[in-house]
Design a protein around this nucleic acid. Structure first.
Lengths: 196, 196
DNA sequence: TGAATTTCATAATGGTCGTTATTAAACCAC
DNA sequence: GTGGTTTAATAACGACCATTATGAAATTCA
């Protein structure tokens, strides 16, 4: 019983996600969030909790709605295809929406005041999970003979993530899709192959 | 005539620079700045102007004091040495001070509220200058025969900067020097050479 | 219809932000 | 010394921050 909720929680979370994407965690104010969601402050609090909880839910949604290409990529047959697929999708994601370029995780909190530290740590942890998955995938590639014996899966995973992060920064700085594709092509040209 | 300034402006700027380095532009408050510099707020205003002006002066100082390896790098004989030297120095800079890891320019403002937009643009512009210098250097390398005819100087410059930005993000996330060196090594392994 | 319950919008909370009056202290030229 | 001038420190400014108390509106069950 009781009064019904008059706004769509899913839509509100999507709108909040875009605000965080564009302005980062601390840069997004409740004035921004209420304007984007069309939902008054108290309603946001009752639906999502405080700002940190709202951001964490937006981050979860970001992974499942926008980073869904990551699990798909890991299933591709070769490590090179994995890397190429991820970079291609990341470029698209980083440049698709002019109003919120780059990556939510990177824009979110690179630096900020001390009270943003828990959120910063959450983003670092999420990044570390992705890195581990990549490393395991490349270890498998090495075991399968897709990667040469000299290949270092951990270094490859770190390298790929570095390029991805760098492209996210460049996208935030206004880089075009074409420029980022040239970066990805250069990164791929270094990819180790089995053939000696 | 008049009373003498009791604090060292240079030292105060250095201290402010470290605060911005660690917390970014918006994340750094005047409470942080006065504590780090030992200078009261009004004195900071009279010496440097407002917060944006202070940040810009800190950024200038950052380039001349910490990024002084960039002009040196451009004078090295080969493009590969240029890239290797820059990455090596960047890794050192990004991990040398545990209290302010990563890069001031990257940490400064990736995202933030709208009023930080002028500062964000200043950082983007500064980055663009560095990219242009790299591109010109690689064009020279191509003309000199150091780089093959198939090499794309603009793409190489963008790629190198992407890796540098990515390493800065990773340093902020706690990456060790060794991990970053593996990333740099992987990036260098892709570097085009004249010999077919 | 009426009591219970949930959501709604308005507005206020204490705190911190960047910025600046204000006043006391220190210095130089005369 | 004294007047003129610059800096120093305290404290205040309005604005905005995240968060929440408050009471009206809306719905369900009895």
């Amino acid at each position: 019983m009781g009064r019904h909720r008059e706004f769509d929680v899913e839509k509100a979370l999507d709108a909040a996600l875009c605000v965080f994407w564009r302005k980062g965690y601390e840069g997004a104010s409740y004035a921004d969030l209420t304007e984007a969601t069309g939902v008054e402050r108290p309603a946001l609090y009752s639906a999502f909790g405080n700002k940190e909880a709202l951001f964490r839910q937006a981050l979860d949604r970001y992974y499942e709605r926008y980073l869904d290409y990551l699990p798909k990529a890991l299933e591709l047959p070769t490590s090179r295809e994995v890397a190429a697929f991820i970079m291609s999708n990341a470029i698209d994601l980083n440049t698709r929406y002019p109003s919120h370029t780059g990556c939510l995780g990177i824009n979110g909190v690179l630096a900020g005041s001390d009270e943003a530290e828990p959120v910063r740590q959450a983003l670092i942890d999420a990044r570390a999970v992705g890195e581990m998955q990549l490393r395991e995938r490349f270890e498998r590639a090495k075991a399968e003979g897709d990667l040469p014996e000299t290949a270092k899966p951990a270094a490859l995973a770190a390298f790929l993530l570095a390029v991805l992060h760098g492209m996210a920064v460049q996208a935030k700085a206004g880089f075009s899709r074409e420029a980022l594709e040239a970066v990805a092509e250069q990164a791929l040209s270094a990819w180790p192959t089995k053939s000696a």
